[in-house]
Each structure stands twice: as structure tokens, then as C-alpha cells.
């Protein structure tokens, strides 16, 4: 147990992660279409300000600005040759601030999806996915990341490929999926099947969970699903600050700091150990979340009704795992041999 996240998990019964990266960078003037990762080198002060926002708001863990820093995504900006550099610098900037903070902080090297559909449905092979993630992992490791933070994944094979890449890089890792389609990931993964997938991996993550998706309520329903599957592994909850709304030409997430404070405490009651925000979560939200986690007592595991009452309704009637979901009988003809 030599890594910073394991040490922290051993001594604390909850940890706060950070909020949004994209939302906060756009607030600092990133224009859409630009690869945020290029700012690591071109605008390092803004990336420092991004990290500092999370640190000053009381996060124990913050993610590096490297979500789209894999060759597959950077290719769209003709920066596929800069994977190692952009990831290394993303982590270096974080390392610098973490070491100077005067308290324990985990620099988590963010790894987002490749954006490609994997074989046999799409064209990305498993081996190629491992290679893509491995290249990024080495850059993050080189820059001093404590742990790799694989997030917003929807396909089981992509999750496995990232795990293998972490293993090749000799790095501890955590992994979260985005459950945005009626309680499942886009590729049909349920909360229960992610728990099963995680425990079957040869290089198991230190923690696993859900991020992004559709609002705070749905995310907590997924966390309840993890807990119900009986996992002993720490659960991560990183939900969006509500749902995006279009107001006067701008998009803004309707989740207030008060709502996210409620969400944080409920996430802990649902069984999450690592709690943070995702899209729309600003430092202001994080301050409110931290205060709530520190001052409010733990409660019983909330029911779905309580979650809906306090955070708003769910986007779909079920979480995709229930028995009522068995497909209706479709009259089938004989299969060919």
C-alpha cells in the first residue's frame, strides 16, 4: 500500500474528489473545439488555476487536464504526436501544486474514452485500445500522477483495455463508467454488471464507480445498484451538477451548491466513499459539498423516493437491472444451425 490514494482510503472514511474540468475551463475562456489538453502547455497558469479551484475548495483528490489526451482524440486536433508530452505536463502541473499544498492530496491522471467503437461493432481492436491507453498512462506516470483515473467509459472492453494499460504502466488505477441510458451505459452495462466486471479483472482498481450520466439522482441510483451487488471495493460517485438548461443563449446546469451538498451527503449514505462532481460542478459547489460532508451526520441508506424528493426525479423508470425488465417474448423462428 504505497500509493497516496490507498493510504488516504485507509485512514479516512470518505474522500472528496473534484468537480468539472470542461465546465470550469470554458468559464476561463477555452473556446469550444479547442483541445483542452493543449492548454497544459500553452496556458499552464489557467490549468494551475483549474487545479487550485478544486484544491482550495477542499478536494482531497483532483483530476489532471488529460481527459481527451489519448492519441485517438488528439488526432482530431492533429496532436496525436504529443500524447506523452501533454499528459506528462498535465500531471506535472498537478504534482507541483499538490506537493506545495501542505496537506495530503491525490493527483489523479484522468483518462477518458477513445471515442471509438470497439470490435466487432466498430473498428477499434482491443490491442489497439490497450496501446492507446498505455501511451497516455506512461505520460501521466512520468509527470507524477499518483493514480490513473479512467472515466466516462461505456464499453466493457474499453474498461478492460484501460485496466490492462494501467497494469503495463505499473500504476494503481480507478475506473468509472457513465450510466446515461435508462440506468445503463450507452453500451448496455448495468451497475451490477460493472461490479462483476471489476472483480474479474486481473489488475483490479482501487475504487470504481459512476461519473457524469444524467443528473445527480440517476447517479445515486447507480451507486445504490453497486452497493446492492455487495461490493467491498470503495465506490466513486461523481455526478453532474443537475441537468443542463438553456437560458438566454447560455447553457447552465440547474444544480445549485445546496443541491450538490445534499447530493454529496446522500452519496455517502448510499455507500460511496469517494464523492465529487462532474459536468457543471464549480468550486462553489465543491465548497458546499465539503462543508456538508464534514458537518452533517451520516444517515441510513436513502430510498429511491427520498433521493427523488431531495434531488429531483429520475430520467427513466428503472435502473435497467430489475427483474421486470426481462424482454417480452418475441416469437422466434428456428435459428439456423
Amino acid at each position: 500500500m504505497t500509493d497516496a490514494l490507498s493510504r488516504m482510503l485507509a485512514t479516512r472514511d470518505w474522500l472528496m474528489a473534484d468537480g468539472a474540468t470542461g465546465t470550469n475551463l470554458f468559464n476561463m475562456g477555452l473556446s469550444s473545439g479547442e483541445a483542452p489538453e493543449l492548454w497544459n502547455v500553452d496556458q499552464p497558469d489557467k490549468i494551475r488555476a483549474l487545479y487550485r479551484g478544486a484544491i482550495d475548495a477542499g478536494s482531497d483528490i483532483f483530476l489532471t487536464n488529460s481527459f481527451g489526451g489519448n492519441a485517438s482524440r488528439l488526432k482530431l486536433h492533429d496532436a496525436q504526436g504529443r500524447v506523452r508530452e501533454l499528459n506528462r505536463v498535465a500531471a506535472e502541473l498537478g504534482r507541483e501544486l499538490a506537493d506545495a499544498a501542505g496537506r495530503d492530496l491525490v493527483v489523479a491522471g484522468s483518462i477518458g474514452p477513445t471515442g471509438e467503437i470497439m470490435e466487432p461493432m466498430g473498428v477499434l481492436s482491443y490491442a489497439a485500445a490497450v496501446e492507446i491507453f498505455h501511451e497516455q498512462a506512461e505520460g501521466l506516470k512520468e509527470g507524477g500522477a499518483d493514480v490513473l483515473w479512467v472515466e466516462t467509459i461505456s464499453a466493457p472492453d474499453e474498461f478492460k483495455a484501460a485496466a490492462e494499460a494501467a497494469s503495463l504502466a505499473g500504476m494503481p488505477w480507478v475506473g468509472t463508467m457513465s450510466f446515461d441510458t435508462a440506468g445503463r451505459t450507452m453500451m448496455g452495462v448495468t451497475a451490477t454488471s460493472l461490479v462483476e466486471l471489476v472483480e474479474k479483472l486481473p489488475h483490479k482498481p482501487l475504487a470504481f464507480g459512476a461519473n457524469c450520466g444524467v443528473g445527480a439522482s440517476d447517479l445515486l441510483r447507480t451507486v445504490l445498484g453497486f452497493a446492492a451487488a455487495g461490493t467491498e471495493r470503495p465506490i466513486i460517485a461523481k455526478g453532474n451538477a443537475g441537468i443542463p438548461k438553456y437560458v438566454d443563449g447560455h447553457i447552465h446546469y440547474d444544480g445549485t451548491p445546496e443541491l450538490m451538498a445534499d447530493y454529496a451527503v446522500l452519496a455517502r449514505d448510499c455507500g460511496a466513499t469517494i464523492i465529487g462532481g462532474c459536468c457543471g460542478t464549480t468550486p462553489e459547489h465543491l465548497v458546499a459539498m465539503r462543508a456538508a460532508l464534514e458537518t452533517r451526520p451520516r444517515g441510513a441508506r436513502p430510498s429511491l423516493d427520498e433521493i427523488a424528493e431531495r434531488l429531483g426525479g429520475f430520467s427513466s423508470a428503472s435502473d435497467g437491472t430489475g427483474e421486470g425488465d426481462t424482454p417480452p417474448d418475441r416469437p422466434r423462428r428456428r435459428r439456423r444451425g
Binding site: M121, A155, A182, M186, M187, S316, D325
Partner: peptide, 10 residues
Amino acid sequence: GILFVPEVLL
């Protein structure tokens, strides 16, 4: 919600 993206892609 009976089929998911992988099946639809196939």
C-alpha cells in the same frame, strides 16, 4: 430498452 447500442450496431 430491450436492445442496446452493441446489438443495434450489429
